[in-house]
């Protein structure tokens, strides 16, 4: 069993931790750190009898996750204050939404940037308000800026220099160039309030978004953490709502995301034992490639099987951008790189 697979097994069933040798622990902890799952692991294993050094490390990780959570929630609050009167309630995405809503997916989770969803017709006003409240453009590059504004699903990233936090302002959840076209209007219309002037995507939309994010956004790095999010979300929502699975199927179809959601369900079931419906459990041949890629780290947390990862990176870019546009994008990047050095 690779260390990443052991990590997945322990996350899914904490009692499996008792069987780990010191060598296995060293590997699992290094991989958990690299996959940004160490805070999650710490919360899952809290209270279990563990070797002293492991317990101390996980205690540190839990404290770190708690500080991360505090900062993330505060950043959301500052954005809410800045955008009051423009977008109410403020729709949070990804990790910040999970912790603000008190979901299991947010427990111990590491959180990076603040991601928010703003209706497209409020985008200009939101941008102006954020700039007036101390946020700044990260890199004022005219080409990148034009590219973002024309084709991406978000504003160019903004940073609040005093708090050193980035905000990604999305107006939909995939680039406009992508072949998948989630319906932004429905996402906003069905968002659910979570208190404190904040909201998040509906239980079905949040999973559709997580699945799209897992496969279409980037190169699957950090994918194990995203898949864990999906496992937790599916368990929590399916338990609360007996009609959840058919609703999810309908919604995936609305957004044109049936294939990615189905794959996410199969992979989550395979790795974490997510109780998805019977007909969503059997792995396809291509799923095994994804699994290998998600678990591609050795006991020193080195990314092994680089070729697989590279293959995925190209694939994911093609999925987001029609080929001619991709060529133009890369060309401008290369030319700029050449003139710079």
């Amino acid at each position: 069993m690779t260390p990443a697979r052991t990590l997945a097994a322990v996350l899914a069933d904490p009692s499996a931790a008792e069987a780990l040798t010191p060598g296995a622990w060293a590997a699992v902890l290094a991989v958990a750190q690299a996959e940004q799952l160490i805070g999650t692991l710490a919360v899952r294993l809290d209270g279990l009898p563990l070797p002293a050094r492991v317990a101390a490390l996980l205690h540190d990780a839990q404290a770190t996750a708690l500080e991360g959570r505090r900062q993330a929630l505060w950043e959301a609050e500052m954005a809410r204050r800045a955008l009051a009167g423009i977008v109410e309630p403020l729709i949070l995405l990804k990790g910040t939404a999970f912790v603000a809503a008190g979901l299991a997916a947010g427990q111990g989770r590491s959180i990076g940037d603040l991601d928010i969803l703003v209706p497209r017709d409020r985008l200009d006003a939101a941008e102006t308000a954020l700039l007036a409240h101390g946020w700044m453009w990260v890199k004022p590059d005219p080409y990148d800026d034009a590219y973002y504004r024309r084709w991406m699903h978000e504003l160019p990233p903004l940073i609040h220099p005093e708090r050193d936090r980035m905000i990604d302002v999305h107006h939909t959840i995939l680039p406009l160039t992508a072949r998948l076209r989630p319906e932004a209007g429905k996402l906003v219309a069905d968002a659910v309030p979570i208190g404190g002037g904040l909201a998040m995507l509906s239980p079905t939309d949040v999973v559709v978004h997580a699945a799209i994010h897992l496969f279409a956004d980037g190169d699957l790095s950090g994918g194990l953490r995203n898949l864990w999010d999906i496992d937790r979300l599916l368990r929590e929502y399916a338990e609360a709502d007996g009609g959840y699975w058919p609703s999810l199927a309908t919604r995936s179809a609305d957004h044109g995301a049936v294939a990615v959601v189905a794959r996410a369900m199969r992979l989550a079931h395979a790795l974490f034992g997510t109780p998805v419906p019977q007909d969503s459990q059997r792995l396809r041949l291509s799923d095994r490639l994804f699994l290998r890629c998600l678990l591609a780290r050795d006991g020193w947390a080195r990314e092994s099987r680089k070729l697989t990862r590279l293959g995925f990176y190209i694939r994911s870019h093609w999925m987001r951008m029609p080929p001619a546009m991709l060529a133009r994008h890369l060309w401008i990047k290369w030319r700029k790189g050449a003139s710079a050095g």
Partner: peptide, 12 residues
């Protein structure tokens, strides 16, 4: 120390 480390360093 050959047990669980606090930190891992790799020279690659």
């Amino acid at each position: 120390h050959d047990g669980v480390p606090d930190f891992t360093v790799r020279l690659e």
